[in-house]
Write a protein that binds this DNA or RNA. Structure first.
Lengths: 129, 129
DNA sequence: CCCAGTGTATTAATACATTAATACACATCT
DNA sequence: AGATGTGTATTAATGTATTAATACACTGGG
């Protein structure tokens, strides 16, 4: 698991871990059921306090991305059943709005924005594991 | 200018102002050149400290959304020339990635995500001023 | 020139976030 | 049962964010 932590870029370390793991899972480089590095191991690899990794894993567990088993290890969770609840769609809408607001501010048209989404999606699934 | 502030929802007041003004500008309910409420006036309307509004306006000015003129007032800035710099496209890509990661986690397919973006865009430009 | 209205700057109180140190508890294997 | 490797909980130090109180400075109209 190759994570890149930048201690000086303002973004909290635990969030950098969260985001990168989310990306790895979304792009299938980490698959459901697979074990991820133990807290201490990842902490050592990143030269970071174990609690910081634990914090990240906690967030990821709450987000349904990871599953921790006490005394055993931490694993990538199964993908959830598609699209339950309007609560969840609201989050997606917020993300879409943020994208559209930014695009509008940059003078980027809708179709160009859609193309960007498609391009990023392709890139996300592109590279090998 | 109709803003809704929720003091108890965890999101900082100044950010709620920033986001809502961004939305109003992106959706053309506020047009370039138009004067927005003075800091104190908006602060009074929202029952908030003037510094909090000033903080929001400062962020919006830095984002190129508003333009302040000392002693005179605050105005909606002109739309920037379309798409300069790769720095700016990087922000858009990050937003697109966030959307795609969230969608993936919810089991929402690419085409459905694209449709959502189109739908939100339509809704954004829908209502009257 | 003054006045009223505008944005600006400084400082501080308070709360929250972030990271770390340390000790604890559970699971598995022998 | 013990050893080892796993996640957990508690506490604290430190920094950062958020909001507010207050005084300052610029602009335009009488």
């Amino acid at each position: 698991m190759q994570l890149q932590i930048d201690s000086k870029k303002g973004i909290p370390i635990y969030l950098q871990i969260v985001n990168q793991v989310k990306y790895l899972v979304a792009s299938r480089r980490l698959e459901p059921g697979q074990e991820v590095l133990p807290i201490r191991a990842l902490a050592e690899q990143l030269v970071v306090n174990p609690n910081t990794v634990a914090r990240a894993y906690l967030e990821l567990e709450r987000a349904g991305i990871l599953m921790k088993r006490h005394g055993t290890g931490t694993y990538v969770a199964d993908a959830p059943p598609p699209v339950r609840g309007s609560q969840r769609l609201k989050i997606l809408s917020d993300r879409a709005d943020a994208l559209l607001i930014e695009a509008r501010q940059l003078g980027v048209e809708l179709e160009e924005t859609v193309n960007l989404v498609r391009a990023r999606h392709a890139k996300m699934l592109a590279v090998a594991k």
